[in-house]
Amino acid sequence: MPLVYYRIINEPIDIRFLEAKVSEVTNGAVLTFIGQVRVNSRGREVSYLEYDAYVPLAEKQIGRITKSAAERWQVDVAVEHRFGRIELGEASIVICVGAPHRDVVYEASRYLIDTIKEEVPIWKREVCPDGDFWIEGEEAIRASEA
C-alpha cells in the first residue's frame, strides 16, 4: 500500500519532514514540488498573501486527491498546504512524491498540484501596497474594507 500523508496547517511547512515521509529505501525517485509566494501577480506588486480555507472540506478533498494519485500511480505521497498569512518566498504548498522509478513521480506530482488548485476550497487574498485582491479562479476581485 502506498503511503499517503496530508495536512492543512497554519504554520511554516517542514519540507525535509515531508521528503522523509516518501523516502523509503525502496523508492529510487523522490520529487518535491514547492509552491511559494511570488512578489508579483498580474502586473501588481504583492506584499504578502493571506490564504483562507474551508478547513473541514479542504481536508477531505486533499485526502481524496492524494489517495487517488497514490492508487493510480502506485506512489507514496506527502502533501501539506498552509493557510493564514504567508510571506514572500515562503512555501504555501509542498508536494512530495516517491516511487521506485522516476516517470510516475513527475506525472503524479503534476496531477496533484493541478487538481488541488481546482478542487480544494482554499483562496488567496493578495495583500498589495494599493489594496487587497481576492483570487477566484482566474479572476482577481478587489477586496472590500472590513
Binding site: 509552491g35 478542487e119 483562496w123
Partner: peptide, 9 residues
C-alpha cells in the same frame, strides 16, 4: 457554504 472558484496552491 458558498465556494467561489478556488485558488489554492
Amino acid at each position: 457554504a458558498f465556494l467561489p472558484p478556488m485558488s489554492g496552491g
